[in-house]
């Protein structure tokens, strides 16, 4: 079932000198199995928005529907406990949440809390380690001995082990090397395509958005400023200028080529390879001067 935000506003520390309106009348609908990116400048309310999806924050105003759950300002946390299993939230720098004596127990922590039978947890752990590309020999190691990238994958495993139908990720590639980042995203894409999980992710890397996501939601100052296909948003020059978003690199090249007279269809371009193919297609068509 979809994720719907109905006129959601959120205020941090209301009635205090630190009061801050982080979300303003947000309306959104994210369908099942969509792969959505949420972008926006720092402080625009992206993380705040994500935390509403699994009920960590309750809206100050409006309501949110996720699967069969409805979250309103008056919702009791008890009543939406299982929502946290269905909508798995992976925080930025999730390595900070590791604490168990070994990797195995840490991954098992989430599913155990939600009462998943032990035998099934074992099964899930084994298959997940392969899915995220970690050797099973790590299971007995302390999570604090792992490298940064490994820690992060273990943390991701910890969420995936709860088998959520919606996966929410806050800057999953922050602080990873480019290859590690691409690996994570390919994994996330696989989860979306093969297991049909809805993916909602926040990122500052526009190249990733263009390459992987079906839809982009642009937040500015807590308001939804734009919502649409990545290519359309990244080719909207007015919007780019106004919201200070940097175009993905391949589209920067494409924009120049189009300006120079090449009749590229930017909708076909998601990465460097697509760009090359598109140029070849146009050239073969004999459009060049």
């Amino acid at each position: 079932m979809p994720v719907t935000f109905n006129n959601v506003s959120y205020i941090y520390l209301p009635h205090s000198p630190y009061e801050h309106v982080a979300l303003k009348h947000v309306n959104l609908k994210i369908e099942d199995q969509e792969f959505v990116a949420i972008i926006g400048p720092t402080g625009s309310g992206k993380s705040t928005l994500l935390q509403h999806i699994n009920g960590l924050l309750l809206p100050s105003e409006g309501s949110i529907n996720v699967n069969e759950y409805t979250i309103t300002p008056k919702t009791k946390v008890r009543s939406i406990r299982n929502l946290r299993r269905e909508a798995g939230l992976v925080f930025q720098f999730p390595e900070y949440q590791l604490f168990e004596a070994n990797v195995h127990d840490d991954i098992a922590f989430g599913p155990k809390n939600f009462g998943v039978p032990a035998a099934e947890i074992e099964e899930r752990i084994n298959s997940l380690m392969t899915t995220v590309g970690l050797p099973t020999s790590l299971l007995e190691r302390s999570p604090f001995e792992l490298s940064g990238g490994q820690k992060r994958r273990v943390a991701l495993c910890g969420i995936l082990a709860m088998n959520p139908s919606i996966l929410v990720l806050d800057e999953p590639t922050a602080g990873l090397d480019p290859r590690g980042g691409a690996k994570s995203l390919n994994l996330i894409k696989k989860l979306n395509e093969e297991q049909g999980k809805t993916i909602i992710l926040v990122t500052h890397e526009m190249d990733i958005v263009l390459e992987y996501c079906q839809r982009v939601i642009l937040l500015i100052d807590g308001e939804v400023k734009a919502d649409g296909k990545p290519a359309d948003i990244f080719m909207n020059q007015e919007l780019l200028a106004e919201s200070k978003i940097v175009q993905p690199q391949v589209l920067q090249v494409a924009t120049r080529l189009i300006k120079g007279g090449l009749k590229l269809d930017y909708r076909n371009i998601k990465n460097a390879e697509d760009l090359a193919n598109e140029i070849a297609r146009v050239k073969k068509g004999g459009v060049s001067k």
Partner: peptide
């Protein structure tokens, strides 16, 4: 706390 709450800590 939020990260652990997301993993079912109550």
């Amino acid at each position: 706390m939020k990260a652990q709450a997301s993993r079912g800590v109550d």
